[in-house]
Design a protein around this nucleic acid. Structure first.
Length: 569
RNA sequence: GCGCCUGUAGCUCAGCUGGAUAGAGCAACGGACUUCUAAUCCGUAGGCCGCAGGUUCGAAUCCUGCCAGGCGCGCCA
């Protein structure tokens, strides 16, 4: 509808421009006015046109209206305010959308994937395999998963990937922490050092390790060639199982878990560095001391630096540490280039806001190595403040008061976690209150929306109980749907595909959550003002069809958010 | 010091690739259950859109400066 209106207006505008012999293109863009007496759609073209043609906008709007050929569904159009063109549609035809929705079912709002679909590699979570996920990881996980579902629904070919940081010093620290726990279990007096992982979960892992191998067996192994690799693999395996279970509790799955270690083992990282040397993109140099931070032990050291400044970065970045081993950055470049070589020209990464300083250097590297501009597209998710009854939950790893994602999910449920994490733009910090998330009222949006769905189901059950047969969808007369509340619902249903499209194009998944809150509000409001089941058969059939369509859209939306749609509450 | 994000009603936030009278929930106050689920609804009240300039026919929205908060700034990931 929107499309055909824009096309009609565009033709008139182009004609007008041609008449004036002006060789510019002014694009028509329709908006949905907030005020309902401003019509169903509004165009502001006359205003920018006024600047181009040197005539008052209202006069130009008049001319456009005299030239435009509207599609049948348009009831009329008029000029208002400084020069807006307000378009009114025949509502009878708009209300027909409920039939379409009931026919389309879970496909309403979706675009089918085909061979032309754009391939997107969506990387999210990628939490380090050194411990359980925390609440902040959870937000990225939920946002990423919902975004993946939305993109897929809009016809993109989405591949979901988790990058496992299973290399580097942190992994050695993890393995040594595990080994100390094993030794402690054997009664040896050994303490963890600062920086080692103190969590309970490693004691559990150590116990399991001792079930699979005897202590004597482990001790007898050659430290570097046998025991250490075994400890490393064992620790990573245990941590990833734990993380996968945490994700499964939120119904989050990946197409591929990509190992950083595999990039090192296969020589991919070394190859990359060699290639960069050949391309003269790296050099031996020293970096200036870091700014704004007390650095007592800074020593200028010569190391391999990537000329990222040539591609927009602030400072050249090291690819190898002092001991000659590659940096995390080096492996990460290799990873993103690997994605490119696997055919992903579009990559979306979801990171925590604390990694924000990293975006430019990765994009610079990608630009240098693949020519891709602004890739990966990085979404930075701000932190989550965990609250309980209005008070911030203080967390400290050392004091053992660290609340894991799993504990939160177990306490309030997956639906509440998922929906609440989706209600705000990712740029905004999020207060997540455990008590609110358990409340069953409007303060907790997930119940508000789910209740609207349950309410639709209750109405349909009631109709069945009363022996009301649902008329064939296409024979229902939707012109009965004339009240403000009904028009509002119809308008919301019509807006669903547009909203999803916007959410997908702007990578803003929260739009779906706020849309559903609005739709639920309209449904509740309608419910209180009007009875669906009444003595008027024609009206009853029309309203039953309307609420079926609303229920369908709520269900479709919730499923894209990964939230359930209970039929009773 | 530099970079990124944020600043809108008492609170939590929408609105931000410029449009008409800046919206919603909570909290406050006043109403609505003999009815398809009151886990809901209706109404009232509440605003120098952080501050100051600028661009524009038009700025919460774009630009500049400042103020406040968050995150980050060596070969940790």
């Amino acid at each position: 509808m929107k499309q055909s209106l824009e096309t009609a207006l565009q033709l008139a505008v182009d004609l007008l421009l041609k008449e004036h012999g002006v060789d510019v293109h002014v694009r028509v863009q329709l908006t949905r006015p907030k005020q309902k007496d401003h019509g169903d759609y509004a165009a502001n073209v006359a205003m920018p046109l006024a600047g181009q043609l040197n005539q008052p906008p209202r006069v130009l709007a008049e001319k456009i209206l005299s030239m435009v050929v509207w599609p049948d569904a348009v009831e009329g159009a008029d000029i208002a305010g400084p020069g807006f063109i307000n378009i009114r549609l025949q509502h009878a035809s708009e209300a027909e959308v409920v039939k379409y929705i009931v026919h389309q079912r879970e496909l309403y709002g979706c675009v089918e994937k085909d061979e032309n679909s754009e391939k997107i590699c969506l990387e999210f979570v990628s939490a380090n395999p050194t411990g359980p996920m925390h609440v902040g990881h959870g937000r990225g996980a939920v946002v990423g998963d919902a975004l993946g579902r939305i993109l897929a629904a809009r016809g993109f070919d989405v591949h979901r990937e988790y990058y496992i940081n299973d290399a580097g010093t942190q992994i050695d620290v993890l393995a040594s922490s595990l080994w100390k726990r094993v030794q402690q279990l054997e009664g040896l007096e050994i303490e963890l050092e600062a920086g080692e992982y103190p969590g309970e979960y490693l004691i559990e892992a150590a116990k399991q390790l001792l079930k699979d191998y005897s202590f004597g067996q482990l001790n007898a192994l050659n430290h570097d060639s046998e025991k250490w690799p075994l400890l490393v693999d064992y620790a990573i395996d245990k941590m990833m199982n734990m993380i996968r279970a945490d994700l499964a509790a939120l119904d989050i799955n990946f197409d591929h878990y990509f190992s950083e270690k595999s990039l090192h083992d296969s020589g991919r990282v070394d190859e990359l560095i060699e290639q960069l040397k050949a391309d003269d993109l790296i050099y031996l140099g020293t970096l200036p001391p870091p700014k704004g931070k007390e650095v007592s032990d800074y020593k200028p050291v010569e190391q391999w630096l990537f000329r990222t400044t040539r591609f927009g970065d602030d400072v050249d970045r090291p690819l190898a540490k002092q001991d000659g081993t590659p940096t995390y950055f080096a492996a990460d470049i290799a990873y993103h280039v690997d994605k490119f070589e696997r055919g992903f020209k579009r990559q979306i990464d979801i990171w925590g806001a604390d990694h924000g300083g990293y975006v430019t250097r990765v994009q610079s590297a990608m630009k240098a190595l693949t020519g891709l501009d602004k890739q990966p597209e990085v979404l930075l998710v701000q932190m989550v403040n965990l609250m309980r009854a209005g008070e911030q939950v203080k967390m400290s790893k050392r004091a053992g008061t660290f609340v894991t994602l799993r504990e939160v999910v177990d306490e309030v449920g997956s639906d509440a976690v998922r929906f609440n994490f989706m209600t705000r733009r990712i740029e905004s910090q999020l207060d997540f209150d455990l008590e609110t998330a358990k409340q069953k009222n409007e303060e907790n949006p997930v119940y508000y929306v789910q209740y609207a769905y349950a309410r639709v189901c209750a109405i349909l059950r009631k109709a069945t109980d009363e022996g009301i047969a649902l008329m064939a969808v296409d024979s229902v007369d939707t012109s009965h749907l004339t009240s403000d509340e009904e028009k509002r619902l119809v308008a919301a249903l019509l807006a669903y595909p547009e909203m999803l499209d916007k959410a997908a194009n702007r990578l803003e998944a929260y739009r779906l959550a706020t849309y559903l809150m609005d739709l639920a509000r309209s449904l509740h409001s309608f419910y209180h003002k009007h009875r669906v089941i009444s003595d008027d058969d024609g009206l009853t059939q029309a309203r039953l069809l309307l609420v079926r369509a609303v229920g369908q859209v709520i269900c479709n939306g919730l499923s894209l958010l990964g939230v359930s749609s209970p039929e009773r509450m």
